[in-house]
Amino acid sequence: MTPRFFESRRVLTLLLLAALAWSLTAVSWRGDLIHSGGFRAIGEIFAAIVRPELSADTLAIAFRASWTTVAYAAAGMTLALALAFPLGVLARSTTHQLAASIPARAFLAFFRSVHELVWAWLFVAALGLSPVAAVLALGIPYGGILGRIYAELLQDVPQAPIRALRTAGASEWRIFWHARLPMALPDMLSYTFYRFECAIRSSAIMSFIGLGGLGREIQLSLDDIAFGRMWTFLYFLIALVLIVDLWSTAVRRRLAP
């Protein structure tokens, strides 16, 4: 047996290596790769980890900004849920409803294939710097992602209880409410909470484009080279994510079978 040199996997490896080699030539390797003050700035940023600024003013700003960030995230998630639940339910592929499943999947794919920042650009261009733009920019892609996961979770539940109800004379929608949804719900909730954490992070990012919140405060602190203040806001962001995580754990424990 002669080794097959032009085996597709080997060709792909060579192509990728060639692409890597070419990309190295595209980088300028002279001293301007990292600007001269770069290392010093990184050192200062990390030195400030243990010295967050805790003045009353900064804390007041941090609480207000956290509230804005959480409010955008919560409103965005509400819109996402309103999109994801009906579309996810329709998108689950069961043979009896292909006609509804294909368009539902197409919508979900469209919603999630565009990143929230791109949606944000579109809506800021259309609506200006309004909170509505941020909520739409968060809610639409998150709805697409959640709906897709809901469809999968609703499909992958244990089949035996479903078969049992079918032989007891129940049709698909009755089975949906009495077996599929209750069995998938804990995982659906758990994933929703995870996406809520992501929404808080995304909401902070949104504020970089001029919608208030923790992201904008972080940006302003960086502009002022006030690393201590920046860490205060970052710690608030971390705290928000941790709170959602704890909340999610508590809810999941209550829903365990």
Binding site: A160, L165, P182
Partner: peptide, 30 residues
Amino acid sequence: HQQFDLVPHLSALNNVLAGRLGQWSAAAAM
């Protein structure tokens, strides 16, 4: 069946009432 095939997340009562699902409308089932 051997494995009982109940919906583990629902109450015993709701599992029993599922025996009537064939008689109910989808809205009533919900």
